[in-house]
Design a protein around this nucleic acid. Structure first.
Lengths: 154, 154
DNA sequence: GTAATTAACCCACAACTACCCACAATTTTA
DNA sequence: TAAAATTGTGGGTAGTTGTGGGTTAATTAC
């Protein structure tokens, strides 16, 4: 049961198999396949996790990156660090993707993994990392969220 | 007899069956079906209960979440903590929804449950939790309501 | 150029979910 | 007041989903 296309919500518990494959939740696959583009871009997250962008979303990022001038040092750094770890990918007939050893190492993945819908992208986590990361709800001062009250209602 | 569409008021007493299903009051179903969108999003409430948003309502939240940049740590945390527990759902031909074990555990649901209309969303409660929660009317200082007097007339 | 390694593709199966039917209790209608 | 329709609850069945592993094709290493 899919809501909006290319929009991902929810948390799923899966496993990384001996061949380095991870299942993509069928709801997420449906949300992507509405464009008949079963293609996405896998890269490092800013937290210790893996980010998976549907193609449409990634193309927007590419467009934004093109607007940055390489005259600026910080722009060069940002473009390089964003582009270098990104790999295009598709899933197999069973709905699984293959992760590179480099990404598995970066995100500390073991057998048990968590997949989280982040609205415009998907995150793949090791459960322990997710608990310990400084963006975990238990480590956020509630007052920090107050600054968002003019952006979000709930 | 429905009043305004996508607007829910009243309290209903139902039961959680052995398959984790809960009936949605027929009045609430009528209030939602006017859009022919028998779809909603189930998630954790900020109190120990379950929140059920009609699709229209949730889509506004998604739109707001999409406007937050993942470059900001606090924004990432907020998007993750909001999106992660949300599941899209519909009701079956008998008018029931299926709750995930994770949500049942979070809200301490047993067999008997209470469904409360919260105007723009629906809450599902364990009766004991509802009595004990610190937002219960018996635990609110009436003077705290005074701060609302410029927002609500009654 | 050949061997070894890796990736892609296919099949199989257990667990789970969505869908369907049934029925008692309640409410509405005639 | 009786019949008809609706509502809430229980359970069976067929289809889907997640996971493991075997076989072939492609890539890499020597």
């Amino acid at each position: 049961m899919t809501l909006t296309k290319n929009t991902f919500i929810g948390e799923y518990s899966y496993s990384l198999d001996s061949k380095g494959r991870i299942n993509i939740p069928s709801k997420f696959r449906q949300a992507m396949s509405e464009d008949n583009l079963e293609t996405f871009v896998i890269t490092r997250g800013l937290d210790p996790c893996i980010w998976v962008y549907p193609l449409i979303q990634w193309q927007q990022i590419e467009k934004d990156l093109k607007s940055l001038s390489s005259l600026s040092k910080i722009h060069r750094a940002f473009v390089r660090n964003t582009a270098r770890y990104a790999t295009p990918s598709t899933y197999d007939k069973q709905g699984r993707i293959k992760l590179t050893p480099s990404l598995v190492e970066y995100s500390f993945l073991k057998k048990e993994i968590l997949i989280i819908g982040m609205v415009n992208k998907i995150e793949i986590w090791d459960p322990i990392q997710l608990n310990n990361v400084d963006t975990n709800i238990s480590k956020i001062n509630p007052e920090e969220y107050d600054a968002l009250s003019d952006k979000i209602v709930l």
